[in-house]
């Protein structure tokens, strides 16, 4: 049954994969063609914009769509635990986002082949941004899994992005290393040759595993507890 749920979500969200993939590859081709900025900078620009846009596209109706169309009731009638329904949605979104970032990285590697920036650098940076996007989406799930409208989902996803941005700036300016290790954006420092003193890879990974596990647990719990009166 879980496979069927995955298949349903995959079919429903395939257009997002096609949309994000097409748009990103088109913009990568354009920017790498016009070369207004160095290839490495182009890679960062594309990946950064993608990091902000792809989670929004996936988040807009992944949970609220079922609620507003009232198909969530039909879904809950399936002989399958609710947490499996949540995970089918979550995993398909994560897989879709990963594929989008992989496609972008690959296209940038092709467009920038034998040019000024090392191919590995372009792919690595894109994948790092992809990881950040997935983390942001996970945090969104914790807040908006019960959202009933696109507006609610939109506010939640921007809230997560801006909120973590505020925490990121605050922890950098006020030099609070433990908070830095929890912010999704601190993963960018991994791409730097010389990382800041506070940066510890092991702490970063551990902090994020703990935080994301908690976020997924909260999201799953809240999804299971969705009331029938919707």
């Amino acid at each position: 049954m879980f496979r069927q749920l995955l298949w349903k979500e995959w079919r429903e969200n395939l257009w997002k994969l096609v949309f994000c993939g097409t748009v990103r590859v088109a913009f990568a081709a354009l920017l790498f063609r016009i070369r207004l900025f160095p290839d490495a900078a182009n890679g960062v620009i594309i990946s950064f914009v993608q990091m902000l846009v792809v989670p929004v596209v996936y988040a807009l109706d992944i949970f609220s769509g079922e609620m507003s169309n009232r198909t969530i009731h039909l879904l809950f009638k399936f002989p399958v635990p609710r947490w499996k329904i949540f995970f089918s949605k979550y995993l398909v979104c994560v897989l879709g986002m990963s594929l989008v970032f992989a496609a972008t990285g690959l296209s940038m590697a092709i467009f920038g082949h034998e040019r000024e920036a090392p191919t590995g650098l372009l792919v690595n940076n894109t994948l790092l941004f992809g990881v950040v996007a997935v983390i942001l989406f996970t945090w969104f799930c914790a807040f908006a899994v019960q959202s009933r409208s696109e507006a609610g989902s939109l506010v939640a996803v921007f809230g997560v992005m801006i909120g973590w941005g505020i925490i990121f700036f605050w922890s950098l300016v006020c030099e609070v290393p433990w908070a830095n290790h929890f912010t999704p954006y601190s993963i960018f420092f991994w791409a730097f040759r010389e990382v800041p003193e506070w940066f510890r890879l092991s702490s970063l990974i551990t902090s994020h595993i703990i935080a994301l596990t908690a976020a997924i647990a909260v999201a799953c719990y809240r999804f299971v507890k969705v009331r029938r009166v919707l």
Binding site: L60, S149, E150, A151, S153, L154
Partner: peptide
């Protein structure tokens, strides 16, 4: 008349 779409 849909908040999110109108905003976008």
């Amino acid at each position: 008349r849909k908040t999110a779409r109108a905003w976008l």
